[in-house]
């Protein structure tokens, strides 16, 4: 055991036992002095750093591992010396302290071993902090399981919100988002608009060209809608051939302009299914939270837009209608 380990001279047997205990630990253990010189480097450190004690003892640790400086290591060691407290390196933020190869041979998700580290003060006989003890824990496995779990949770969440065919929001997510946005409207009093769009004579497309063709038309239409909206707008599939647009921070006038633009764009677009080219039109109903009581609910807006859509259909299709409450 190197000289200078706090705790003073041990009786020989005890010293031998301590030495073995430190080497038996399944975590890294380093002791540094005020100048960041290495006084102890246990076997775990030897194994993972591939540096033997002889190569590191007495050397300044940031010269052996210059990348420690970029992690704020020197500052934290300072804090332990100055305040006599613990300091920590969290894997979540730093991934690792020492760039050791990941120890697990059978997984290659991480190039480097994921580590948490603790810096603890070691006091001399007068109670002054003379050394800092750094312990390093391999958390690669835990992190891997956690990340896998997070990924699958995210995937499931995504799936539970997405319409399988068109990959836009499904009806449930649409309703959730609309309710959330309405809560926000209540706080900031900005206008929120809602539009329902429906493909005209969609049954004919299905009956004439088959359901696969109809599906393809919906996929293309959904893609078009998504591409022409702002990032904070939401498009969702409301029903069979019905789509819904949630437009936060948009007044009625702008919403109508947007929907009209989309309607014209759709009528001018050639939809493709294999070699087949076909044209469709859409009808739309639009409503807006402005001029309505602040506590207006999602289902109220939906039924207003739905009613307007119905009027657009009955008065000839390929047109946009406003909700009754906005008609003067």
């Amino acid at each position: 055991m190197p000289a200078g380990i706090p705790g003073g001279p041990f009786p020989r047997e005890r010293c031998l036992a301590y030495e073995q205990i430190l080497d038996a630990l399944t975590q890294g253990l380093i002791v540094l002095d005020r100048d960041l010189r290495v006084l102890l480097w246990n076997r775990w450190m030897e194994q993972h750093s591939r540096l033997e004690r002889g190569q590191v003892l007495g050397r300044v640790v940031t010269e052996i591992y210059p990348e420690l400086v970029k992690k704020g290591f020197v500052w934290k060691v300072e804090s332990v010396f100055k305040l006599g407290n613990y300091a920590f390196f969290s894997q979540r933020l730093h991934r690792f302290l020492f760039p050791f190869p990941a120890a697990n041979y059978l997984q290659n998700r991480y190039e480097f071993m994921q580590q948490n580290a603790v810096l603890a003060p070691l006091r001399g006989p007068e109670g002054r902090v003379d050394h800092v003890c750094v312990s390093i824990m391999d958390h690669t496995d835990t992190v891997m399981y956690q990340e896998r779990l997070e990924e699958s949770t995210k995937r499931l969440e995504q799936m539970s919100q997405t319409d399988h065919l068109t990959q836009v929001a499904n009806r449930r997510h649409l309703f959730d988002r609309l309710s959330q946005e309405l809560n926000r409207v209540r706080r900031n009093r900005q206008a929120l608009s809602l539009a329902i769009l429906d493909v005209d004579h969609f049954k004919k497309v299905n009956d004439t060209y088959g359901h696969l063709c109809g599906d393809q038309v919906l996929v293309q239409l959904a893609g078009m809608l998504k591409a022409s909206l702002r990032t904070y707008d939401l498009v969702g599939r409301y029903g069979g051939e019905e789509f819904c647009l949630v437009l936060p921070n948009t007044n009625l006038q702008d919403a109508v302009a947007l929907v009209e633009r989309l309607r014209c764009q759709v009528s001018e677009t050639e939809f493709q299914f294999g070699r087949l080219r076909l044209r469709i039109t859409i009808s739309a109903g639009v409503t807006c939270s402005q001029d309505q009581p602040p506590e207006v609910r999602a289902d109220t807006l939906l039924s207003q837009a739905d009613e307007a859509l119905y009027r657009a259909k009955t008065s000839g299709r390929n047109q946009t209608e406003l909700a009754v409450c906005h008609l003067e």
Binding site: G72, K76, S79, L83, N85, Y86, A87, F88, S90, L93, H94
Partner: peptide
């Protein structure tokens, strides 16, 4: 990290 560090030193 700044929050953690300030928290850690002040609490400590």
């Amino acid at each position: 990290e700044a929050l953690l560090e300030v928290g850690n030193v002040v609490i400590g």
